[in-house]
Design a protein around this nucleic acid. Sequence first.
DNA 1: AGATATAAATAGACAATGTCAATATTATTT
DNA 2: AAATAATATTGACATTGTCTATTTATATCT
Lengths: 199, 199
Amino acid sequence: MSEKRDPYHHGQLRAELLKAGLALLDGEGVDAVTVRAVARSAGVAHSAPANHFKDRRALLTGLAVEIFRGRAEAAERIFSEGAESPKERIKLFARDWLASGLAFPHRYRLIWRRDCLDPQNTILNAEMDRIYDPLVALFSEAGGQVHVSPQSQAIALWSLLHGYLSMRLNGNLVEGLDEITGRPREDAILESWLTSQNI
Amino acid sequence: MSEKRDPYHHGQLRAELLKAGLALLDGEGVDAVTVRAVARSAGVAHSAPANHFKDRRALLTGLAVEIFRGRAEAAERIFSEGAESPKERIKLFARDWLASGLAFPHRYRLIWRRDCLDPQNTILNAEMDRIYDPLVALFSEAGGQVHVSPQSQAIALWSLLHGYLSMRLNGNLVEGLDEITGRPREDAILESWLTSQNI
DNA sequence: AGATATAAATAGACAATGTCAATATTATTT
DNA sequence: AAATAATATTGACATTGTCTATTTATATCT
């Protein structure tokens, strides 16, 4: 009833368009993900995508949802089985977030490019909450002696990670070692922040 | 010899184009800042800007330089005469950075959109150093008892500010109060971070 | 001053893109 | 089998960035 198989030429055109879009994104960035380019990659007419994505925004939103969902699932895995202490879980999440952002810079940029995405789409925010809520819970559980709420702690951590990543991916910061500890700067900053939260 | 006055129709076309571009940027965001739109605003032919800006990238870079320069000058003022203690100066800078980002969201976004700007242009990085270097010096001077370098402290603070602002401007975060202190969340986070640096 | 070079603006063209409309083809439902 | 819906195709259009050729104004030089 809802199984579509080989309609006209394809049957999985939507999936193929997303696949092509992801390849273009990884390769040349979001500007290369045009409606016509993904159509070409998939071997269909330039207006074929319109049947599956209302417009370019919808196409990019489809990509962003897939990407964010992957990160949220990774985060959930870490939160539920990653380590013993809340602090360790938070640290694992933070490291994973940084590593995946550095590994797939164009993907990371896209999920924050709200001007490219559908603002009506609530899925992105929902995926974000799949990370935010457990993070708040972890800070609650950790019970650090700080004078701000777990919510503010979670937002602060995420701001720290996102700001650092943004500047790294933007070329404003370069990889480097902390001048005192000699460790990778992002490790040093992260460790220092976690410690300062007394957790 | 180098004074240009009223050549052809204009004489200040470059300045007028930047002015028009800034108005478009503030009003509708970077996508509205097209070569042809600024030409229309200035009342010249669509290809007139080419005499002053090699391409759209150069135009946007011109805008970004002006914007960043303004922020750097504000920062220098704060660093040199803002307050007594290093901690207070750092705090004033941070608040100013947050406030200006929230007040002119499109400007703030543009200066970080390296994909829109000329990567060869070193002026932007130079303007950034006009903030970064004194900030490092202030952390040095403050001499907090933390286990990371002043450089890492400066990068951490900037990451925190930039990440928070990015998410606020992107709509991922909303204005709100810290659940414990009842103060604006960004104030609470900032104060908490500064305190944790023992400065 | 007058000739000439340079700078600054204009008009026109081109390819690429997003998107719309009209049409054709295949699937599904009745 | 017929009708309907879904999916894809072709063609068109306005917009944009950018290139070329051309015109006009300013500056320079003898």
